[in-house]
Design a protein around this nucleic acid. Structure first.
Lengths: 202, 202
DNA sequence: TCTCCAATGTGAACGCCGCATACATCCTAA
DNA sequence: TTAGGATGTATGCGGCGTTCACATTGGAGA
């Protein structure tokens, strides 16, 4: 808290906060250790006492992002168990990506560094969360396979929206599109079933 | 072609090639304009005669990547029109991402710069290609919506694999997983139909 | 054929960056 | 009270993106 003492007090947290702010303000390019140090009111090399290098700091920010994402999803629905509720969580996922584009990109910009246990733990939590949802929404189905599919679909939607490949004009439009995609995942087989029945007969 | 003349001959293409090589060798961090210039055997500032800045060069590499990806997909199957053939194209998509991880990331690292018409054209081509496949695979379905879903699913799978969130041990394992996910997209509704029939009755 | 000019490549310089090293300050536990 | 570890500072190195003034060239028009 105190500014004028030699020791900062909680430089670790201050760096994390500054890094997060810089990321949201100027994107990934603006996130430099020196800028973080400046914002924390500290010399350029001080952050190295708390983070081994720039990647370590980015990893910490990413881990924070994973936890926030998890919270955001849980807030959309605490325990989804129907396709509609699952779609609501999917919407929250994409919404999070659009609200924090630079953070979201930082979270997935590089292969998740296995040496950052904080990071693997956070991603594992998300993965497990999705799996749990799928399991309760579709009991009796191979939850591992389907949860991968669902995650991939939603994750892909988030990125396509982020890349401006889809209509992102209003949150409502985005939400509708995500819901449509999720429901399409369940309706697509109808067309297949039609063509299949012509072969399989009734 | 000639090396010892003052003028390079085709520095534009040489930069592109060097950039591509550096990307594959050292990842995105290794792609610096100065390194490109060194590799092309030219002064550090020469590339600026052909690319406005680093981003412009990266955009050019990305555009090349899009075209290669399109070719790779077409090679997997020229005109897919069944779910299995569509799955084969999906496998090719993910395979491309895993074979050129840095390039693939560069292609989607930033929102597609609308000022790079070369880039938007290349991505539009991919988008249109997917839409065409879906349309011929599932005639009578809203091709726009479903193609978005399919692309998102495959794109998400590619990224999850790239991020090491899925088993990437062998190409066969990956291919099987992608096929499973694509087919899951058609089978998921079966479970839904079951639970639905308990309400709708027969 | 000569000449000029636009295109292309060079060199030096600026400020930023990540990072290593040596040094300064402070808190705390013995 | 006092070491010593933890934390922050000062300095410096090499690399980077980018700008600007300058050098070299090939080719179009006289």
């Amino acid at each position: 808290m105190p500014q004028d003492t030699y020791h900062h007090g909680d430089l670790r947290a201050a760096c994390l906060r500054a890094a997060r702010e810089l990321l949201e303000e100027d994107g990934s390019a603006g996130l430099s250790l020196r800028a973080v140090a400046r914002r924390a009111g500290v010399s350029a090399t001080a952050p190295y006492r708390h983070y081994a290098d720039r990647d370590a700091l980015v990893s910490a920010v990413a881990a924070e992002g994973y936890r926030e994402l998890a919270g955001h999803l849980a807030q959309a629905h605490p325990a989804p168990s129907t396709p509609d509720e699952l779609a609501a969580v999917a919407v929250a996922y994409v919404q999070f990506a659009l609200e924090h584009p630079a953070l979201f990109r930082a979270m997935f910009a590089e292969p998740c560094d296995p040496t950052s246990e904080e990071r693997v733990a956070a991603t594992a939590a998300i993965s497990e969360y999705v799996r749990g949802i799928v399991q309760s929404t579709f009991p009796g189905v191979d939850a591992d396979a389907l949860s991968t599919t669902v995650w991939a679909l939603v994750h892909g939607l988030a990125f396509l929206h982020l890349d401006g490949k889809l209509d992102t004009s209003t949150p409502e439009v985005v939400a509708a599109q995500v819901r449509a995609a999720v429901h399409a995942l369940f309706n697509a087989s109808r067309a297949m079933a039609q063509t299949a029945t012509t072969q399989t007969a009734v």
